[in-house]
Write a protein that binds this DNA or RNA. Structure first.
Length: 557
RNA sequence: GCGCCCGUAGCUCAGCUGGAUAGAGCAUUUGCCUUCUAAGCAAAGGGUCGCACGUUCGAAUCGUGCCGGGCGCGCCA
């Protein structure tokens, strides 16, 4: 079932096809796939259907012709031990059935690699970075950030597992206007607390947490009067606010199981000198021009809808400019590729920042933006309305406290990032069969109670030379385990961990079905030993998958 | 008006680069615990895959055009 088997078959069939039509040079490529239906074998090729036009014959007739040649080719190759049966089925598929021995190889492979089963050197140590969350330190993290955190973290784990040198980074946007507003908000709330009448601007941060911060601030400084508050510069409020909230963010993320390799600060990277150097570089490449008193970047050269302003007519830089410096900094640090995880409100920004990467000499796909759709929160069956500006939203902290880390991470990962997510707090909280979180973990935990039972009976798990497992539920479970590596590759292809979540649910389903149909520990010691080996192999695969998703692997539930 | 994402069972969603009779969970109905955890298993009902053309031996999947929903279109960040 592994990739090399598919490749071997592909080559073999390709050779057979070529022998049938030596003069044809535009033969279709051979594709091998795993049929959805068990009655269609373990592997299948549609080559006869694809080449119907070239051979000017019915697909079934072509398949029959190829079948004889494939049979003899297999008999004289190493595949003989692996392929049990080959047959043609309407409308012209050629289906391959694996031998039991080939299926058992999966189990031996799992035991040989253990917690490294599924790992590979596919990534060839390519150095890449995923930047995610990167919320401005102006408030606690929301559910949107929580989803991005779960996705970024799981994706990093998967990329590392398949051989990439992957790093996770948080970009702290501490240079912009919003920090000034944050400082102002704290200051005004402090004055309010002291009984002053203040006009609190609508654009300032309205959340209750600002009042808490103002109290903390005054306690720290031992401020008692409005004059004390007015006596310190705005910078003090800004620094306090940003640092305070950054600490909150770090703590919340840590409690969510997400720890970054690097926290980059805009204020340290996008310095005046580095911005000027960037502008000079872009100018030398002929990618900027002045118009209406502003400095523009020709992003249209790279497919953007319109050019973008780098420096406003008042002399200040737009958000884009330091962000380009930051991305240049990423590539200068040796990251071959970079991924930015952003919310859907940023999709209009993609062309711009990719244009910048190309202007800096990178290829189009060296910078990829992963847009993670939002999550709607449902409580008591109704959607909770959220507004960041008004400070009304469910925070990551509330999600952690209310449903727990495992359930929250699982829910955030169980849908494609392209899919808008419905997060039902009541469902996520439930410790019952309705909650999909526990389905996978329960399979893992069940193995431990089997092991306890086996220990009583003095049965040791077998880890090689399997031969007695013949039940369909056993074979299905083993074959499903063999699909683990390809699901990791699929997660990489789509840059989204969700295929792994779906896979683990399928694997758990195979396990539960086996569990209900057959007893592991019974009066046949040889069979019991093999079944014990089987369920422990399943436990390894489940554990590896859960670990990659950042979920716990309970031994008891 | 333009751009991105979504539209598949009552609900929430899978369906990978086009393949064989469109799947799962939840919900509904019905079975299975004196034996390794019932947070489990089995069975039943439930679908013009938003609509229409097109490409193809073959379309939920690809293309075009509509319809519907979400988000975004600043010298904001």
């Amino acid at each position: 079932m592994d990739a090399s088997l598919k490749e071997q078959l592909k080559v073999l069939i390709g050779d057979v096809l070529k022998a049938q039509a030596p003069d044809q040079d535009d033969l279709p490529a051979v594709e091998i796939e795993k049929p959805a239906d068990k009655d269609h074998g373990d592997l299948s090729t549609n080559i006869a259907l694809k080449s119907a036009r070239i051979f000017r014959d019915k697909p079934v007739a072509i398949a029959e012709k190829l079948l004889a040649a494939i049979h003899s080719a297999i008999d004289s190759s190493a595949l003989k031990a692996v392929i049990d049966k080959v047959e043609v089925k309407a409308p012209g598929f050629i289906n391959f059935y694996l031998s039991d021995g080939a299926v058992f190889d999966v189990l031996e492979d799992i035991y040989a690699k253990a917690d490294q089963y599924g790992a590979s050197d596919f990534g060839k140590k390519e150095k890449l970075q995923i930047e995610f969350v990167s919320a401005n330190p102006t408030g606690p993290l929301s559910v949107a950030h929580a989803r991005q955190a779960a996705v970024g973290d799981a994706l990093i784990n998967i990329l590392k597992f398949i051989g990439f040198d992957a790093h996770k980074e948080y970009y702290v946007n501490d240079g912009g206007n919003q920090i000034r507003i944050l400082g102002d908000s704290i200051k005004l709330r402090a004055l309010e607390i002291l009984g002053e009448t203040v006009e609190f601007p609508e654009d300032n941060y309205q959340g209750e947490y600002i009042k808490d911060m103002a109290k903390h601030f005054m306690d720290d400084k031992n401020f008692k009067s409005a004059d004390d508050v007015k006596g310190v510069s705005d910078d003090v409020y800004m620094d306090f606010g940003a640092q305070y909230l950054l600490d909150v963010i770090k703590t919340d993320l840590k409690d969510f199981g997400v720890e970054f390799d690097c926290w980059s600060h805009e204020s340290k990277i996008a310095t005046q000198a580095s911005i000027e150097a960037l502008l000079k570089e872009l100018d030398q490449k002929g990618l900027t021009y002045e118009s209406e008193g502003a400095l523009w970047f020709k992003t249209t050269d790279f497919g953007d809808d319109k050019d973008r302003v780098l420096r406003k007519s008042d002399g200040a830089y737009t958000y884009l400019t330091p962000d380009i410096v930051y991305h240049k900094h990423k590539f200068d640090r040796g990251f071959n590729r970079a991924f930015d995880v952003l919310g859907p409100d940023h999709h209009g920004y993609i062309k711009r920042i990719k244009a910048a990467a190309q202007a800096l000499g990178k290829e189009v796909d060296d910078l990829q933006v992963l847009i993670v759709q939002l999550a709607s929160i449902f409580r008591d069956g109704v959607e909770v309305s959220m507004s960041t500006r008004r400070g009304q939203f469910i925070s990551l902290r509330e999600v952690i406290d209310e449903v727990g880390v495992d359930a929250a991470r699982f829910f955030f990962l169980m849908r494609s990032i392209k899919q808008h997510l419905e997060f039902d707090l009541d469902l996520a909280k439930k410790q019952s069969s309705e909650n999909p979180v526990y389905y996978v973990q329960y399979a893992h935990a069940r193995v431990f109670s089997i092991n306890a039972k086996a220990k009583e009976a003095g049965i040791e798990p077998k880890a090689e030379k399997f031969s007695l497992l013949t039940e369909p539920e056993e074979m299905d479970l083993i074959k499903k385990m063999g699909e683990f590596p390809s699901n990791l590759m699929r997660a990489y292809d789509v840059l989204d961990p969700y295929p792994l979540v779906i896979y683990l649910q399928e694997l758990a389903a195979c396990f539960h079905k086996f569990y209900d149909c057959h007893r592991v520990v019974d009066d046949n010691p040889e069979l019991s030993a093999e079944r014990l080996g089987l369920v422990n192999a399943a436990r390894i695969v489940l554990a590896n998958g859960l670990k990659l998703l950042g979920l716990s692997r309970p031994e008891k539930m």
